[in-house]
Design a protein around this nucleic acid. Structure first.
Lengths: 337, 337
DNA sequence: CTGAAAGCGCTAACAA
DNA sequence: TTGTTAGCGCTTTCAG
């Protein structure tokens, strides 16, 4: 069974192929009755336009690139499925493209990729959304793009945010409400844009609860398990050790838990631990991790929406913010509990 | 800067476009000197053929589909990156396609996908490699495909294996060598083909160590954390409880660890636990999990190789087996240790 | 509002 | 061993 082509649709609908093309592309200047007739023929034949032919003939490629350099597999999978859903629904394909954000030639490579694969647009996820050089290049080249969780709100029309800061403030206050006063914090990788917002949320949470900020309770991590473990070990070795540790992501929180275990501390009895992201790990360690669920899938769907609109030249509505929510599990509890 | 086309290459090399086409496609019947001349022109111009045009004109699409329905994000990401590497190197693109293996219309959908996207071939990962209906459909339709870790060796030319059974035997004997005699086993999801081989390896390991197989030490899981937790809880409630538990994957092993912790058992003091896969979780829980590292990336690269060869009609060499290896960490130790 | 004709950049026959 | 000529299925002019 051969694929049905635009000609067969045109024949069945008794119009020219150009009219069919107009209908396919939602172009104006087609009488409603004609449009209906064509739509009907399309349905009856199960016709779907050939992407290669459209790409070759037209200006658009119906292809968007998805750029990522994220060590968290579950993050990437969530982003992919969100974007896939949206794009397939609109007959766009996605080109997944793992990157190395430290690669000095990254900009050139991406520019090349866009040109060669004729990408209609790009979706950037952290830490690529934080890559200033890349972002300015795209702006300069007028390449449509959208950023998931960029570090600031300077380009809201091309961004999807979550409320890192608010929810971190909330988490800190929650820990305080359990009686904790020495609440440590492990900062994430400095190259990661959301890191600042989360840290600020923590600080605000402290002051909101009337707790003094202490530099000595802050550790620097790099988003990895091992970095969290090391940072926590330092914090826990102090004379006045924290009774709670809030880490900038779940991997570091898990590392902190390991450090605590190895030092003979029980969780949450001697130490409460909280993370951020709600990766699968969070519910698979013991005790299960109190954390913050980031709406990754919803954010990526929204990002795809924005990008497709942008590509079509349609207006993009206001600030896109999808809230993260706290998930309280077993790794946090009342002080001395 | 417009993209350079085959015509410009032909002009520079002073040959016809057909000759350039022959060189691009590694076709025979081109004099070596001509081939060199053309290659040189291609390099000088930085020419790369337009995929859409090739797809439209030719029989091949330079597109392969990657099918998966796997809850483990790290597994999928590893497969993707292995396949991507190989395919991009050969100028093939991949179409990632999450599936639902329980969907009754799956076969029809895949058939449709192949036809509509004009896929040159398909890579199946578990549990899709175990989907008999799908596999026979592909065979019948003469659609090139390759299976990662299929349930049996009935079609070695289209398969990449690992030595599940051998390495599970080895792990079981390792546990026995630590003094364990009551070694429990949690079976994975029955729909998953590798499950049988792993279980058999366990049984062989027992008899190899001179330990009697006891039905009462076997639990049925479904590859998920929670199923492992429940199965382990049953096993540990028995009057003569196991001193070691070997689970068919890491998630279930983590679930078993949770059950043990909640029952007040220490690991590995009271209970040794081992898993399979070496997902990131394995090194991020406490104590870190003794497990078996599956060479997912290497297997998928090999799978891509096999598929591309098959597509080109080149011969496929013998049985492809890439061994898994044991990774001993802290969740296993001498009995009563 | 609709249609005819000219490509997009390449591969597939077929000729030479 | 090489070149010529038709398309592949669609979008884009440009004319009606």
């Amino acid at each position: 069974m051969r694929k049905t082509t635009i000609e067969e649709v045109a024949a069945l609908a008794r119009v020219s192929i150009k009219t069919v093309s107009r209908v396919i592309n939602d172009e104006p200047n087609v009488r409603d009755t004609t449009r209906l007739k064509v739509r009907d023929a399309i349905d009856r034949l199960g016709y779907r336009p050939d992407q290669s032919a459209r790409r070759l003939a037209g200006a658009r490629s119906y292809l968007v690139g998805l750029l990522y350099d994220n060590p968290s597999a579950s993050y990437v999978i969530d982003v992919q499925s969100g974007v896939l859903d949206r794009c397939r629904a609109e007959n766009y394909e996605i080109l997944i493209n793992p990157c190395d954000y430290k690669n000095h030639a990254l900009c050139a490579e991406i520019e090349n990729l866009v040109r060669h694969a004729r990408l209609d647009g790009l979706i950037l996820t952290p830490p690529l959304s934080d890559h200033q050089e890349l972002v300015s290049m795209l702006r300069k080249q007028l390449i449509p793009f959208v950023m998931v969780a960029p570090p600031n709100q300077s380009d809201p029309a091309r961004s999807v945010f979550t409320n890192d800061r608010d929810v971190c403030r909330e988490m800190t206050r929650y820990l305080a409400s359990l009686g904790h006063e020495r609440i440590g914090y492990i900062i994430g990788h400095p190259d990661h844009g959301a890191v600042g917002a989360r840290y600020r949320g923590y600080q605000e949470g402290l002051s909101g609860a009337g707790i003094r900020f202490r530099k000595g309770l802050i550790g620097q991590g790099y988003n990895s398990f091992i970095s969290g473990e090391e940072a926590a070990r330092q914090l826990l070795k102090r004379k006045v050790r924290p009774t709670a540790i809030f880490a900038g992501n779940d991997e570091m929180a898990a590392g902190a838990m390991k450090a605590a275990h190895e030092m003979g501390l029980t969780i949450p009895g001697d130490l409460s631990v909280a993370g951020f992201d709600d990766v699968p790990l969070a519910s698979q360690i013991w005790p299960s991790l109190t954390t913050i669920r980031q709406p990754i899938r919803a954010m990526s769907e929204k990002a795809a929406d924005i990008l497709l609109n942008q590509i079509r030249g349609e207006p993009v509505n206001g600030l896109q913010m999808i809230p993260s929510v706290m998930v309280i599990r077993d790794s946090t509890g009342p002080i001395g509990g």
